[in-house]
Amino acid sequence: MKREVINTKNAPGAIGPYSQGIIVGDFVYTSGQLPINPVTGVLETDIKVATKQSMENVKAILEEAGTSLENVVKTSIFLKDLNDFAAVNEVYGTYFTENPPARSCVQVAKLPKDAVIEIEVIATK
């Protein structure tokens, strides 16, 4: 199957040898999105603001791929501190108000740039 690389200036550029997203067939796979504002380069550290920024970055990649959050089938959330779970859910829930996708949410030892959250998704076209 053909792979198509997704690249948008509306989400932070890759900080390593990877693409923001890849389209394969009818699926879009995003790389994990740190809460970096693509305009200012600021890494958000407040968990609610950070969750919103990571979701906005994911949304921008999906839109560049010709799809949207409505077509997300699986989300993975990586947290620096699982005690932030309720705050993340509060913000995350505003993006998926009906028929939310399947999801994993785990605490990890460390994230790039010492971020508080990273979010990746799989969506259909």
Rank of each mutant, 00 (worst) to 15 (best):
G66C: 10
L111A: 00
E64A: 11
V106C: 07
I122V: 14
Y95R: 01
N57G: 07
V91F: 12
D26W: 03
K125M: 06
F27V: 03
D114W: 12
V108L: 07
I61E: 09
N89Q: 11
P101V: 05
N10M: 11
I47Q: 01
A109R: 11
G25I: 04
V73S: 12
F96W: 08
I6A: 02
A14G: 11
P100G: 02
S68F: 02
M55I: 06
I15G: 03
C105A: 15
I61Q: 00
F85H: 09
V121D: 03
L43N: 03
T40G: 02
A102Q: 13
V108R: 03
Y29K: 09
A50Y: 11
I122Q: 05
S104D: 12
Q53F: 00
P12G: 06
T40F: 10
Q53S: 01
Q33Y: 11
F96D: 00
Q20H: 04
I36F: 09
G93D: 13
G32C: 08
G93F: 05
E90L: 13
V58L: 15
I15D: 10
Q53G: 02
T67S: 13
T30G: 04
I47S: 11
T75N: 02
P35S: 08
K125R: 15
I119Q: 07
V42E: 15
P17M: 07
K125F: 01
E44Y: 15
E4A: 07
M55W: 07
V116D: 00
V39F: 14
V106H: 13
G41V: 14
M55Y: 03
Q53M: 15
T8E: 07
